[in-house]
Design a protein around this nucleic acid. Structure first.
Lengths: 211, 211
DNA sequence: GGGTGTGAAGCTATTCACAGCA
DNA sequence: TGCTGTGAATAGCTTCACACCC
């Protein structure tokens, strides 16, 4: 009865629940912890406890109302205020990210694309024009930026981080395969293909079905 | 004194250690748990215990021999046998992955690129030619495939998984923004941009410096 | 002094198990 | 009967603390 803070592990599962709820048949109105658990291959009690932290109310014998769930998970994640995102580095990866259609569906706003390569500057992706990172300062000031995404080659990444930090961006998602240094108060997450492949390789060579 | 199995959490940090060791000055021969911990913003005792599971031997007062560490971490990850990887889906993301230079450095072999789009089939990336997924069956049989990477649009992903599973591929890395279903015995990991952004957004809206 | 090796303690997260309600 | 809500038990990970060695 003291659901003060939401545990990190629960937070990390919330986006997954949203994903899962999206994939349910449109005419389905309620869902049980067991159904969600089966879809995600996790334990049903974990699902219920996660929802308990969010103060979601289910009906015994029935399940949870899907619409309420989506809205409460969204609220817990802070999606009432839209996230403003900029992407630095417009190689194939940056392009892939810029084309990703999933931003808008969760109320995220893609606000800027940057690259130092003169051949890329001026290209348009959707409604955005690729510009030089020098424009970041101005854009952060005028538009506000919640999250900076780093899709540059490895050697350029730390410089971009330093710039973003200097401009006051406190949340950074790094796709470059390097260990980056950020000051306290900045949240850095990384998406790392090589890491994932090596972990898969480990399970492979140990023939376990582990995650 | 009973280091039977390596904990999952330790395994997930091993690639990070490799990354970190790569970034040390080339003339440095030993490294302390404290240095690594500082670079990765984790606790030094954790680093030592991770190495302990791998039966790495450090020298008191000095640290760990970097070359030995790299080789023992690699061995623990099973890198003595190279990983053979195929990528299905040659949009921007698939292209970005295919161009990634980090495969070879860890002894991974990129063995095949597939797409159903006739306009993409026949394109070359490095030494590989993009082909139709129908070629997968033959390739898996002749070359062996350790890991299948899914870089298709969301609606196509489950079909690709089913195909890979049918062909006997037991490790899959999914980039498509969907929850996928795999049979027991298959290891599925996912890389999910939307998830990462939402988690960052949570921390942002709660102004904590959490990871 | 510096840094490892490692039991033990402390935490956190997962899972069980079952009462309670529709 | 089906499924939630939730304390209690369990399991697993992290961190401390300190003996020990260079």
């Amino acid at each position: 009865m003291a659901r003060l803070a939401i545990p990190h592990t629960t937070v990390s599962r919330l986006p997954l629940y949203l994903r899962c709820l999206d994939q349910l048949p449109v005419d389905q109105e309620t869902v049980s912890s067991g159904e969600i658990a089966a879809a995600l291959s996790i334990n049903a009690a974990k699902v219920r406890k996660d929802f308990w932290y969010l103060e979601c109310e289910g009906r015994r014998g029935v399940g949870y109302d899907i619409r309420s769930l989506v809205s409460q998970i969204g609220a817990a994640l802070g999606l009432n205020v839209p996230l403003t995102i900029v992407i630095v580095g417009m190689g194939n990866l940056g392009m892939a990210l810029a084309h990703y259609q999933g931003f808008a569906s969760r109320g995220m706003i893609l606000a800027g694309l940057y690259d130092t390569d003169a051949r890329k500057i001026g290209e348009t992706v959707g409604e955005l024009v690729v510009r030089h990172p020098d424009c970041l300062a101005e854009d952060v000031r005028s538009e506000g930026v919640s999250i900076g995404v780093i899709a540059t080659p490895a050697p350029a990444a730390q410089g971009v981080v330093d710039l973003l930090v200097k401009l006051g961006v406190t949340s950074i998602l790094n796709f470059a395969p390097v260990v980056l240094d950020v000051p306290a108060g900045t949240t850095l997450r990384r998406v790392d293909v090589a890491t994932e492949l090596l972990i898969l390789g480990y399970h492979q060579s140990n023939q376990d079905g582990g995650a």
